[in-house]
């Protein structure tokens, strides 16, 4: 995150994307930091407009990501600002209901807007793109070390030749996971969140632009290993899939309820190890359903292959449904075009 201007997660890196990004603030200071952009990207950014920094005090401190502190003075215009350019400005509607002109007039602005509205708008765009292309997108969430990447590799191998698969890999650093996925022959792109603890819809939008998943394909988004933060961020996926492994505690669904409430499916991984562990499977499922009564649970082992058929079956059912919805939309559009053409022919005749 650039703490100066607050634009985005400053250290986010999407493989293949990088350029320096410069901001000029009102006071003439120039800030430069690297940003993931590509030329033809279609995500609207409003960086330029968001950089007005009105200052009250003469002395002003900027703290940069690297800890450098800048201090500089500001020149202020002397005039009183009435703010006539905005809408709905009523002098005298402040808490004091004072009508005296020239007095500082605080006022209330009703906002009622979701804090995550920006993320949700990007997620909506991603979802629309996925639907248009018949892409079935899943957001895989878990703690680090639950076996997500191994499960992914196994899933990709099993679907080889039947469905195209593309993967977005989220980690704070390294491209190790994307390298593992690419070794299977599937398209993968690594997103390093830097200091960020989760993927957001904007990062995924950029990653998908580069990745260009095929029509009717499976898109697996492997989120940052973290059972807390990714729960709040919609990426535009059809379902969140939580992966819990038998080497973790069976009460994790109670400890991290938001994640298990946000997920539609829980994969209980590493069941091949159960004979050697004290893990109580029915109790774990009971805890998970306390948090989310509608949660679907699949017992699975990426190593022995147990439960893989049920998991692959669930994926393939959803892939077919996504492709069918796309067909339906295309058919509807064709019908509409045909109807319009008939209308044109009738008018001409």
């Amino acid at each position: 995150m650039c703490t100066v201007c607050g634009c985005g997660q400053g250290e986010t890196k999407i493989e293949g994307e990088s350029h320096e990004h410069t901001h000029v603030h009102e006071d003439g200071t120039v800030y430069s930091h690297s940003h993931g952009h590509e030329e033809e990207h279609h995500h609207p950014h409003d960086h330029d407009e968001a950089h007005a920094h009105p200052h009250e005090s003469q002395e002003h401190l900027h703290v940069h990501d690297d800890g450098t502190v800048h201090s500089h003075g500001h020149v202020h215009e002397g005039g009183h600002h009435h703010g006539h350019e905005g809408l709905d400005i009523h002098f005298g509607h402040g808490p004091a209901h004072a009508h005296a002109p020239g007095m500082s007039q605080a006022r209330m602005v009703q906002i009622e807007q979701d804090i995550l509205s920006k993320n949700d708008a990007y997620a909506g765009e991603n979802r629309r793109l996925f639907q248009e292309h018949g892409i079935f997108a899943v957001n895989l969430v878990s703690s680090p070390g639950s076996g997500k990447t191994t499960l992914l590799v196994r899933t990709i191998s099993a679907l080889k030749g039947r469905h195209p698969v593309a993967v977005v890999e989220g980690d704070q650093q390294t491209s190790n996971d994307a390298d593992r996925i690419r070794a299977t022959g599937a398209a993968a792109i690594q997103v390093n969140t830097g200091k960020g603890c989760h993927l957001d819809a904007h990062m995924v939008g950029h990653a998908v632009e580069r990745l260009k998943p095929a029509d009717n394909s499976l898109l697996m988004i492997e989120n940052v290993g973290n059972l807390v933060c990714p729960a709040a961020f919609d990426l535009g996926e059809a379902h969140k899939v939580a992966i819990l492994s038998t080497t973790e505690g069976e009460d994790k669904p109670l400890k991290y309820p938001d994640m298990f409430a946000a997920a539609d499916v829980m994969l209980l991984n590493k069941v091949d190890l159960l004979p050697h562990l004290q893990f109580n499977v029915p109790l774990c499922i009971e805890y998970a359903r306390r948090v989310n009564p509608n949660l679907r649970v699949i017992l699975i082992s990426a190593l022995s292959g147990e439960g893989m058929d049920e998991w692959l079956g669930w994926l393939e059912d959803n892939l077919k449904a996504a492709a069918a919805r796309r067909e339906e939309t295309v058919a509807q559009l064709r019908q509409r075009v045909a109807a319009l053409e008939a209308e044109v022919a009738r008018l001409k005749g």
Binding site: A106, M108, Q110, I111, E112, I115
Partner: peptide, 11 residues
């Protein structure tokens, strides 16, 4: 489940 900016006091 809401996380919302409700209102602002501004000048």
């Amino acid at each position: 489940m809401e996380m919302r900016v409700k209102e602002l006091e501004v000048e």
